[in-house]
Design a protein around this nucleic acid. Structure first.
Lengths: 148, 148
DNA sequence: TTTCATTAGTTAGTATACTAATTATAATAT
DNA sequence: ATATTATAATTAGTATACTAACTAATGAAA
């Protein structure tokens, strides 16, 4: 029974777990010259492209400045293409390239396998419960945002 | 039932949840000129000081370079003090200052309240289960590190 | 005791994440 | 039509996180 304030804090435990999990996936992606963050954008665009940056930001739970920078990298690598939206010249429509699709399809099984290893030892019911808890936490946190 | 690769990925969900939760705590700590990361070091030192940086890094689940930089900030703010270890001149022993202790004690109830709000709607059993799942994930991830 | 390996901490380099401010375009309201 | 407001994306600034390389001190071995 730990009496540490930090160990008690679920927020802290959530953070340390995320950092460790992210660190391992970063290692595994490194030989493919890809980060987990870049990967999420790529995968989202494989599923649906022709959307703009604001939409992609929402669908990957990232803010727009972060997205801009990661997209720069993906564009430089030739995995993603930007076209100005003819109906709104402020916006860009994002398209995945053939190379980007190939890269994503190479990495998806690696990420899936990692996910499985990460959750080894948990029953399907526990995993479902964990997933639902994460979703509740996200909703709770969203509701606590200060809007200025 | 979503068929999105990203939504299916528990690692991605873990990350988006952590980021959102961290973002809100960052907002709440801002009036106190404190980040969640700085806070964790401070709280750990309130519980036990006179340890060196390597030990503090382990106890807060952070790597040493990150620790060095955050400690710089805390030292500049006068919340933490470093003394060279007389028995090992490579190492520093870390001490919390009176001001640091006061700051920590001011923020601890804020973080605790936030944790409670974050987990609103979950039963104690669900929270316990969630905590145990996080601990299992951490252990699993640790076991998957590539050691060179 | 001199060499070699290890260890504590830092520095350098890269990537991510957020807020706030800016630019350019679009949409709305007089 | 013109002025105002809102929006998409970017830029600037700060903070965190990691790996790799480095410095200084320690410890162990020949």
């Amino acid at each position: 029974m730990s009496s540490s304030i930090l160990d008690e804090s679920l927020g802290f435990r959530l953070g340390m777990t995320y950092r460790k999990a992210s660190q391992i996936l970063t290692q595994r992606f490194k030989p493919y010259d890809m980060t987990p963050e870049q990967y999420t954008l790529l995968v989202r665009l494989v599923e649906e492209d022709g959307i703009n940056q604001k939409e992609l930001a929402q669908r990957t739970a990232r803010d727009q400045p972060t997205l801009t920078r990661i997209l720069d990298v993906l564009e430089r690598k030739g995995l993603v293409r930007k076209e100005t939206d003819p109906s709104d010249r402020r916006a860009f429509l994002l398209y995945i390239t053939d190379e980007g699709r190939k890269k994503a399809e190479e990495l998806i099984p690696i990420e899936k396998a990692y996910d499985k290893e990460l959750f080894a030892g948990m029953t399907p019911e526990q995993i479902t419960q964990f997933r639902q808890s994460l979703m509740l936490l996200y909703k709770n946190a969203e509701g606590l945002i200060l809007h200025n």
